[in-house]
């Protein structure tokens, strides 16, 4: 098992190195050149010269690259030209919000998706099956920002059931020791803040979780259908095991293997979708910050955030592989 993890980790090194080269070249290919791009509208000739010297842009490219990689390893991703704060600071400030949002979306997707997919497979060929297949195809195609608008309009503006935007009611006097607002409410014992933070997560969480939900339903359904026809299920039935035992121990447990992989793959989708969802709900997370940085052409932020996302994505995929290896011993051999 350790060897398996080590091999997977070793495979990541060239990918991340290559990616760093690409992102480094990306900044150099930006319109107007990196100094101008970093300065944005404040790019006077003197300022450009100063930034070039400051960032060592007058030195050969390989020296520049090594300096940049060195800085990245020391946690220095540059300074946001929009807020004038270090990119790492902005990342640490905004990422907890997105983690909360992504968790709610994932809980929604898996919590509703696995039972629905299972039900559709068990009732294969009935109207329940057809509705869930059609519904999941529809769910995959619905643009997340449009769904966000509709949810916001109906449940927040018309019915007034949930807050329209933000992470927390600004009038609430809530402390934030961890940066995870839901957790903060629990830690500080402020139940009102806890409930409020949770309420702010419902609509964006559902909007963000809909595509993963549709995918989880499909995969669960297909996987359960596959497993139901396996020999070992027939054997279990033949030897007279209770149907509930067969369903739990044999069918569901084996059917969930592909679901684990697919859930891991959704992390990338969630981080991308967060950019759109957080914009719709003015949710001050990583995605909203990134969307604002696009408008402001804040390239240092884009570079740092994209690199960070890629690292997270690659690590989550590694975790999924490892988890898979733990659940299914056959994987480790190959």
């Amino acid at each position: 098992m350790l060897g398996f993890v080590a091999r997977r980790l070793a495979l990541l090194v060239p990918i991340l190195l290559g990616l760093s080269v690409l992102l480094f070249l990306w900044v150099r290919a930006l319109p107007g050149g990196p100094a101008e791009a970093l300065l944005g509208e404040r790019a006077t000739p003197e300022a450009v010269a100063r930034v070039k010297k400051l960032y060592g842009l007058d030195r050969p490219w390989y020296e520049q690259y090594l300096t940049w990689v060195g800085n990245v390893f020391r946690g220095d991703l540059g300074v946001s030209s929009r807020t004038q704060h270090p990119v790492v600071e902005e990342l640490l400030r905004t990422f907890p919000a997105t983690v909360e949002l992504a968790l709610v979306a994932m809980v929604f997707a898996v919590g509703a998706g696995v039972p629905l997919g299972y039900l559709a497979a068990r009732r294969h060929g009935t109207w329940i099956d057809h509705v869930s297949v059609a519904g999941s195809l529809f769910g995959i195609t619905i643009p997340v920002f449009f769904l966000g608008y509709m949810l916001k309009f109906v449940f927040a503006e018309k019915l007034g059931l949930l807050p329209t935007d933000g992470r927390q009611d600004p009038l609430l006097d809530a402390g934030h020791p961890t940066g995870f607002y839901v957790l903060d409410g629990l830690v500080t014992g402020n139940m009102e803040a806890f409930g409020d933070a949770l309420a702010h997560l419902v609509l964006p969480g559902v909007a963000l979780g809909t595509i993963p939900l549709a995918i989880v339903v499909r995969i669960t359904r297909a996987s359960v259908l596959d497993v139901l026809h396996e020999d070992y299920v027939r054997t279990a039935e033949a030897k007279g095991l209770a149907p509930a035992t067969i369903r739990g121990r044999h069918v569901l447990r084996n059917a969930l293997l592909p679901v684990v992989t697919v859930v891991g793959l959704q992390v990338g989708l969630l981080l991308g979708g967060a950019v759109l969802t957080e914009t719709v709900f003015a949710f001050p997370g990583f995605g909203k910050f990134m969307a604002d940085s696009i408008v402001a052409r804040d390239y240092a932020v884009l570079q740092g955030f994209i690199l960070f996302t890629a690292v997270i994505f690659v690590l989550v995929n590694l975790l999924v592989d490892v988890a898979y290896g733990l659940i299914d011993p056959r994987v480790r051999v190959t």
Partner: peptide, 15 residues
């Protein structure tokens, strides 16, 4: 290894 939409954002911003 870069999520699709973020990748697209990066490329479009570069162009």
């Amino acid at each position: 290894s870069v999520p699709g939409l973020l990748f697209a954002i990066g490329v479009a911003a570069m162009l």
